[in-house]
Amino acid sequence: MFKTQPQSTLDSSRDDLAVQIQHLNYFFGVGDLSKQVLFDISLELPKGQIVILTGPSGSGKTTLLTLAGALRRLQDGSLRVLGKELVGLGDRALVNVRRNIGFIFQAHNLFESLTASQNVEMAVELTGKFASKREQSVTMLSALGLADRVDYKPKSLSGGQKQRVAIARALVNHPKLILADEPTAALDKKSGRDVVTYLHNLSRQEGCTVLMVTHDNRILDVADRIINLVDGRLESDSTPNDFVQHKTQEALTEVSADMFIM
């Protein structure tokens, strides 16, 4: 079976980009009930960058992440992930794209019935490397500080440890792109910080791109870049320092404006 890919007339794909989004619109529902949640998004994520996506709740961050992760079909605009155009792809082709992406969720979603290592091995099995899967899994868990926990079931692990197992599962196949949605939300301050530090170090070693949604102001410093999404539109795109300064200024002007009215 041969499928002809819709050939983009404006083929401006670039090798140095992990994610390239052009004029992306996204709607939930169909017909009268259809509701647009993303408006004309254009965004480029160079390889190796750690990008934090922030914004108020309901602004479309998760939706954008699931689209970039090939978890939803999409029809409009252009979305290239690791050199592959996702717009117009069928379910089978989307599954193949997913295998090159590491996902980290707010909930760890580990199989309670499997040990830490087995949970990670499930990811390795997708690559067919059955002979080395245990070794790969143990190496990755050790890199995350879980060398002495490989054969524990999730029940006997702390929240932070479980999240690290989930990260090991996402990273064990060395994906070139990692998508994380509030990975620290369920963790206490210390474990949250640890998890992000591990993620940061691994990204630097492996040279992979990280797109992470977070509300957690304490971890903004690991980012190379911070993108703010409001009501489905890109509001700002800046470095952590600018972002923080901007936020403070905003707060100041709000205060002075209030004073002025009084």
Binding site: L71, R92, V95, R98, R99
Partner: peptide, 9 residues
């Protein structure tokens, strides 16, 4: 669902 996200069919 996670397995599907990882790329299992």
């Amino acid at each position: 669902a996670t397995m599907k996200a990882m790329g299992y069919r």
